[in-house]
């Protein structure tokens, strides 16, 4: 089911096109990530989905409703800002109470997100006194209030330490498993590769790629495999003789081989049969490189 559907969005600021016909869908129970360089139009796209920015043209549907017309649909939508700007004079408790009142949910729900994000220790602390990572946790807790059907997150890992990142990742997996649609932007390629079911790459207000992280790597990098072995010399020779493709990088006990076709199993068999001692063999999904290519596309 499409939880968020954006069709042909066009937005211009001071005659400068920000979005040039962006169409995007995000489904329930999936994590959809939008990638792109700064100024690509990612945040504008999210803000249009939340009815914060009016598109010049195009259609916006969130859970089947137009959020500009039907504000009640936002009760089922959670939002986490890139840098959470929360009312800093409120305590964590009062802030979540305010949000709960606005979403018409009760104390039980507040306690649920408090426990989920481990906010008990700072419950009566003013937000102004919380660290950056803690503010991020508070913002995520607020976004998860009322068990949203759609969770929109702009750079959820910005400024978080590895522990918080891992915690957020675990929570997002749980949220996705419960059927929530997660739509987020990110610059963290590793996280995107790990978590996303679908990826959109944006550049200069347009979508340059749509597909899974694997598809992205495949399309922009080709079929690349990593062979972990000490027998780099015989491996290189084998690749050349067998006309499998070419060795892109070799050294430090591993080689990256670009295959002409997706015949990984046959290639591995050939490698083993020729006596190359293989310690590891896997598909290279360096999304960062694929992303660079996708942006250029």
């Amino acid at each position: 089911m499409e939880s968020v559907s954006l069709k042909d969005l066009v937005k211009t600021y001071d005659r400068r096109p920000i979005l040039r016909g962006v169409s995007l869908t995000a489904s329930a129970g999936r994590i959809t990530s939008i990638l792109g360089p700064n100024g690509a139009g990612k945040t504008t796209t999210l803000r249009i989905s939340l009815a914060l920015i009016f598109p010049d043209r195009g259609e916006v549907r969130v859970l089947g409703e137009d959020p500009f017309e039907e504000k009640r649909v936002l009760k089922k939508v959670g939002y986490v800002q890139e840098i959470p700007n929360l009312p800093s004079f409120l305590t964590v408790e009062k802030f979540l109470e305010l949000s709960a009142r606005m979403k018409s949910v009760g104390r039980e729900e507040i306690n649920r997100v408090r426990d989920l994000l481990d906010l008990g220790g700072i419950w009566r602390t003013r937000i102004a006194k919380c660290s950056k990572g803690t503010v991020q946790r508070i913002a995520i807790a607020e976004g998860l209030l009322a068990e949203p059907e759609v969770l929109i997150m702009d750079e959820p890992y910005l400024g978080t330490d590895p522990l918080v990142t891992a915690k957020i990742r675990r929570i997002l997996y749980e949220v996705r498993a419960s059927g929530t649609c997660i739509l987020m932007t990110s610059h963290d390629m590793d996280e995107v590769r790990r978590m996303s079911d679908e990826v959109y790459v944006m550049n200069r207000g347009g979508i340059t790629f749509r597909g899974s992280p694997e598809e992205m790597a495949k399309r922009f990098l080709g079929i690349r495999v990593v062979v972990e072995t000490e027998d780099l010399e015989p491996l290189t020779q084998l690749v050349k003789e067998g006309e499998w493709g070419e060795v892109l990088k070799s050294g430090a006990g591993k080689a990256i081989v670009s295959l002409k076709e997706d015949r990984r199993e046959e290639f591995l068999r050939d490698v083993v049969e020729r006596g190359v001692r293989v310690r590891g063999f896997y598909l290279d999904q360096d999304l960062e490189e694929a992303y660079e290519e996708a942006v250029r596309a």
Binding site: L50, A51, L52, K71, R72, V73, L74, K75, V77, Y79, Q81, I83, N85, L86, P87, S88, S99, M102, K103, S104, E142
Partner: peptide, 14 residues
Amino acid sequence: EQGTVDFFLTKPIG
């Protein structure tokens, strides 16, 4: 200025 307007306008309030 503080960016808190986002918090309110992403809630079910006109």
